[in-house]
């Protein structure tokens, strides 16, 4: 049941790593609400908690304390099956492309659709072709990752994340491996998805070029939100 329109909300979110004397708090009372269709950028120094927050928002870690509401579902104490089901509505873009080396670009992108259940093969291939085309890879669809450049691999990974029309995209340095023009195209694509489909994007980046395009910039330091700029 949807609690409100914001696809992502946290309230007094705390998170720790380790146990006993080695236990270290990574997030301190993080409360935020991210609007539907927006492009939010998380910035901050290494170890500030950006990645931890991203993984908690993406159901990749168990919520220890506080609340995370994703797409209307409370994640604190949620069953693992709910996490799996919710992740199918998300798009993940990792800093490393993590493409499957045995699958072609087309097949890797199809994996982003197959997770949603049985999809008509022709429809799935049309969608994958379209996604790869949007990222300028129409002529590389049958290439294995080993035969693609770093930037091309990253664009395949982005196509894989976007092909299933995710409600939320969680991205970790998605443009790090891309040249200026490709990076700008990707961010522009994410912006357009937000406007056209209401896709919400939360992105960790050190790329200052992206900050100008973001709707909101959240700054984390030592596990706390120390800056929140709306644009």
């Amino acid at each position: 049941m949807a609690l409100d329109d914001a696809p992502l909300r946290t309230s007094e979110l705390n998170h720790w790593f380790g146990a006993g004397e080695a236990r270290k708090q990574a997030l301190f009372d993080v409360s935020l609400s991210i609007a539907r269709g927006s492009l939010t950028v998380l910035v901050g120094p290494s170890g500030s908690g950006k990645t931890t927050l991203l993984t908690l928002l993406g159901c990749l870690r168990e919520v220890q304390d506080g609340s995370v509401v994703l797409l209307g579902h409370e994640l604190h104490g949620a069953r693992p099956a709910l996490g799996v089901a919710l992740r199918r509505r998300l798009g993940f873009i990792f800093q490393a492309h993590n493409l499957h080396e045995s699958l072609t670009a087309m097949q890797n992108v199809l994996m982003g659709l197959q997770v949603k259940g049985r999809v008509d093969k022709a429809t799935a291939e049309r969608a994958a072709t379209h996604a790869l085309g949007l990222l300028g890879l129409s002529d590389r669809m049958d290439y294995l990752p080993a035969n693609l450049s770093g930037g091309q691999k990253q664009r395949v990974a982005i196509a894989r994340a976007l092909v299933g029309n995710p409600d939320v995209v969680l991205a970790d340095e998605p443009t790090a491996a891309l040249d200026r023009e490709s990076g700008a195209n990707v961010v522009d694509l994410l912006k357009r998805l937000g406007e056209a489909r209401g896709t919400t994007t939360v992105m960790v980046t050190h790329d200052t070029r992206i900050l100008d395009l973001a709707d909101r910039v959240l700054t984390l330091e030592d596990g706390c939100i120390v800056g929140d700029q709306q644009r």
């Binding site: 993406g58 990749l60 799996v84 089901a85 919710l86 992740r87 199918r88 509505r89 998300l90 993940f92 990792f94 490393a96 993590n98 493409l99 499957h100 080396e101 994996m111 982003g112 997770v115």
Partner: peptide, 13 residues
């Protein structure tokens, strides 16, 4: 293929 499997897990497989 641990990283690929982890990626698939993240995607909801």
């Amino acid at each position: 293929h641990m990283r690929e499997y982890a990626t698939f897990k993240a995607m909801g497989y």
